[in-house]
Design a protein around this nucleic acid. Structure first.
Lengths: 161, 161
DNA sequence: CCAACATAGGTGATGCGTCAACTATTCCGA
DNA sequence: TCGGAATAGTTGACGCATCACCTATGTTGG
């Protein structure tokens, strides 16, 4: 009944998993060492600098990062403690909050970005041919389409079998 | 000075990151829902069943999983609490410990494996052509080789810039 | 023999991620 | 206009990952 993976698939899958874990760890380690930021901090700060006024509503940020609101809430609390962001109340909606980039946050991301991009280039793109880059994009799109087909993230996937 | 990513590279990189995060989350969610195991539990149990006698020394397990010993130690403590593994002392070496698969651990992995493989097939390999699979393996190898070049995991990567 | 060192492994603190539950507002319809 | 439902966001508990440090045992050179 179970459609097991053949040797070629196994090798590709194991290789992917191993590369993925190591790459993530190494990028995180470097970013942390060079700037004191985590990848998650980086993503939040990038999302904030992408806004013209460097402020966003919490849930809008969550949805643009594709994070759960609870994850974001916890993360913002930690970032606020470190002075990277602040919060401001929203006049229109008493429930709402804006997340606002602080000067410290802005300078942290500006210091961190070049090194991080350089790491990505060095570890990934310098290793890949143009065709590899296309293949990576194609693969990501194809798998992403599969993921779209499933119950996105919310309630239980409800048995595939 | 910084070699930024061009649009094609940006698109590939963002696509990869997004796919990677979603795939990992979905595989974890399904495995958890179907079997109560995490991916980490799964990996430990697979490593154990790969041994002829279903027992391994802690540090050997750590190195075959490429985990830090401390991570493994914490994880084994949790798995032991849940009855998936036990520990036995090592006669040859008073410092050493064996990790031993319990009956509960064996049946957990046997129940979990088919569904997990099916998820991988459904979400990944069903989406990919043969060439994609080759490309994935090639890309993983190439990036892996880059990672080999860096201070593996231990002490600080020491500034790339 | 024993002091120094290496090795096996565990511990505690802290950051990160998820789930379930909670509070406070706003919205909406009778 | 009032009561229930939806929405915005937080909280607490717990599992997971890393770091720095600790203990206990083994190994080795003088």
């Amino acid at each position: 009944m179970t459609r097991w993976l053949d040797d070629r698939e196994q090798a590709a899958w194991r290789g992917y998993l191993r590369m993925q874990a190591r790459l993530q760890a190494e990028l995180h380690r470097r970013l942390q060492a060079e700037s004191g930021l985590s990848i998650a901090d980086f993503d939040v700060l990038v999302a904030l600098t992408d806004r013209p006024d460097e402020r966003v509503r919490v849930l809008e940020l969550a949805s643009s990062l594709e994070w759960e609101k609870s994850r974001l809430s916890h993360h913002l609390a930690r970032m606020q403690r470190r002075g990277l962001i602040t919060r401001e109340e929203c006049d229109d909606d008493g429930r709402g909050n804006f997340v606002v980039l602080t000067d410290a946050g802005r300078s942290a991301i500006e210091r961190a970005a070049p090194g991080h991009v350089e790491s990505v280039r060095e570890l990934v793109f310098d290793a890949l041919t143009d065709e590899d880059v296309d293949a990576l994009a194609r693969i990501s799109t194809a798998v992403g389409a599969r993921l779209d087909g499933t119950r996105p993230g919310g309630t239980r996937p409800g048995a595939t079998r």
